[in-house]
Design a protein around this nucleic acid. Structure first.
Lengths: 181, 181
DNA sequence: TACAATACAAAACAGTTTGTTCGGTATACA
DNA sequence: TGTATACCGAACAAACTGTTTTGTATTGTA
């Protein structure tokens, strides 16, 4: 990749992150990003078609980071003790999400949370599918999955917005306590 | 209220509802509402300062309807059997929400769900506070509340978006099953 | 019935923001 | 060194918002 490209791309991301610390996504204009990154207008649009695509890219980066670090390879997987294992994995995910706290505040406040959440829930759905072994017949499978994924995603949102700080392990434990019967 | 005012107000709401059946809130422009309602531009802005305020009004209407019909007066309240009573109330809420299905689809799809959800969760928080009697010390109270309210709100979103239709009672039962230990 | 208040229509307006285009300049890479 | 290409900056059209103004129609009331 051309050195110049990488430089401006980084500048855009940095500017975006900086702005996200101050205000929610939807209140940020492309022009502000351009000014903050100190690049030409046409340059921005050469890299990203829209502001949403920039957000998408940032989300992809974050998830790639979070879920690659947090989850073991398929091969070395241990499915044995379902829920206990799930708690562990969720802890890891939370641990890595915590590193993006400042950006996530801006992404998750305001109306724009949806894009992030929708990505996030896809990853989570995978995770929960693998570690859920108590599909009971009492409740439709897809509802159960939706409930767990949704409430965990909400848990994260609450955690990020919260001033009082719980550790990733604590939060995972809280969540599991409300899930297991 | 002036007969003319009521007429245009109704026209605006009707147009808004009609558009919401076809597309998500954020893709609807003020101009479209104006055209659909067949009123003058200035007339719209005489009634509502912004599109968001129109949405707010509609939400208020819906909630007033839903929670007034669905919930008994304070006086005749029966707090006795916590969770069983909660299930009943949630069933009622769902029953009345169902009557607004077509609008809710447009309100809950897309990025704009936040405004509705934030209102909704306020009402729900009240409800859950009253009927929750199993605050355990294992988990922070505000987290427990957030988890229950959040996951029920998500349940509703799922239910509204779903093609397969469950009855209000069924859905309430599903939800309670996942909540109670 | 006549009058005063006010709700409405229509059109023009300024202000934002977006996304595109284009000619010229600077930088990277081979 | 040279060629490709990434960048700059300015100008542009387009969409949408919210305001203002002027004139008309309708309402509730004296």
């Amino acid at each position: 990749m051309d050195r110049r490209q990488k430089k401006t791309r980084d500048a855009i991301f940095a500017a975006f992150r900086k702005l996200l610390e101050r205000k929610p996504y939807e209140n940020i204009t492309v022009q502000e990003i351009i000014d903050e990154a100190d690049i030409g207008r046409s340059t921005f649009y050469a890299h990203f078609e829209t502001k949403d695509e920039l957000l998408r890219s940032m989300c992809t980066d974050i998830f790639h980071h979070v879920f690659n670090q947090a989850l073991p390879k398929e091969a070395e997987e241990d499915y044995s003790s379902g829920i206990r294992n799930l708690e562990l994995k969720l802890g890891h995910v939370l641990y890595h999400l915590d590193e993006h706290r400042s950006e996530l505040r801006g992404i998750l406040s305001g109306n724009s949370a949806r894009l992030f959440m929708s990505y996030f829930r896809n990853y989570l759905a995978d995770l929960f599918m693998r570690y859920t072994d108590d599909f009971s017949a009492d409740v439709p499978k897809d509802y159960l999955l939706n409930h767990r994924v949704g409430s965990f995603a909400e848990t994260v949102k609450w955690w990020i917005a919260e001033k009082k700080e719980y550790s990733p392990e604590e939060l995972a434990a809280f969540y599991i306590k409300l899930i297991e019967k």
